[in-house]
Write a protein that binds this DNA or RNA. Structure first.
Lengths: 142, 142
DNA sequence: CCCGTTAATAGTAATGGTTTTCATTTCCAA
DNA sequence: TTGGAAATGAAAACCATTACTATTAACGGG
């Protein structure tokens, strides 16, 4: 991380290092505010603005992915490698889906329309194991 | 549309009908504000709040899709059938990709994790024909 | 090691899309 | 036709995020 910052011409600050560690230490795709709460014990004076600015920087440096979902604040994924996500409509959890995606998924569209694809995003919506079984219980009752 | 509203127990209002027609009459995935401007000639007193309320209702009734992108307001797609979208990083346009959706795309993830998939979202990011050729021109110059 | 400069931060105000509130209007079943 | 509930218009509130500004801290050159 230090090297990434230096190479890109940015200063190495305590805030940046701690936020980076917090991100790498979780797979829960936290929001900016959750990250703010995670680092407050080590950085009691940090401001939410700094968290946002740092996350925005990390996004530009390619060390994280920002996930945007309807009706909820952005979430941040410390794993910058392309992978897919599954969003639970019950509890709101965001899971990683380490699925391979068909190589040629956009090829035909690209050929037909001239649209030059540089990346894509795939999200599953549904219910995680826990929420799915809760729903089945409720169905049996009601 | 009238029937859809009645069946679901909602009243048939002029605002709802006009907003619905506006949505069906375009493939441009307008924002709430754009829809507001589209209907103002026929409903001079309509308020933006009503547009938002109506779009939210239509989403719940399954007659439209809401598209959420990072850093820009929600867009609304009058075609509720599952299809993909391609977002141009140059001009911001959102195109429909009428690609067949691979049937088993999430099956393995579902089987491995117990996650019950009810829908998914696939978005291509890149450059539309026009923006792609503009970029090539600029490359040749610079 | 200690400056000076300048980027980064903390604290806070501002922004902008969206939702809520509430008084008024409109729908529609009886 | 009318009473009561639902929907609307207008404006305020909300909330995630960004911008502003004075202060602090990183770090290259002495």
């Amino acid at each position: 991380m230090k090297e990434v910052l230096k190479r890109a011409g940015y200063r190495v600050t305590r805030q940046r290092l701690v936020i980076f560690e917090a991100l790498r230490g979780t797979t829960s795709h936290p929001t900016a505010e959750e990250i703010y709460n995670m680092v407050k014990s080590r950085l009691p004076n940090i401001s939410l603005g700094t968290v946002y600015r740092t996350l925005e920087l990390f996004e530009r440096l390619g060390v994280l992915q920002r996930l945007t979902f309807e009706g909820s604040p952005s979430r941040f994924d410390g794993n910058p490698k392309p992978h897919y996500h599954a969003i639970c409509l019950g509890c709101g959890r965001v899971l990683d889906a380490d699925e391979p995606v068909p190589e040629d998924i956009g090829r035909r569209f690209s050929e037909e329309t001239g649209f030059e694809i540089v990346g894509y995003k795939l999200e599953f919506y549904g219910y995680c194991k826990e929420c799915a079984s809760k729903r089945r219980e409720n169905e049996n009752k009601g």
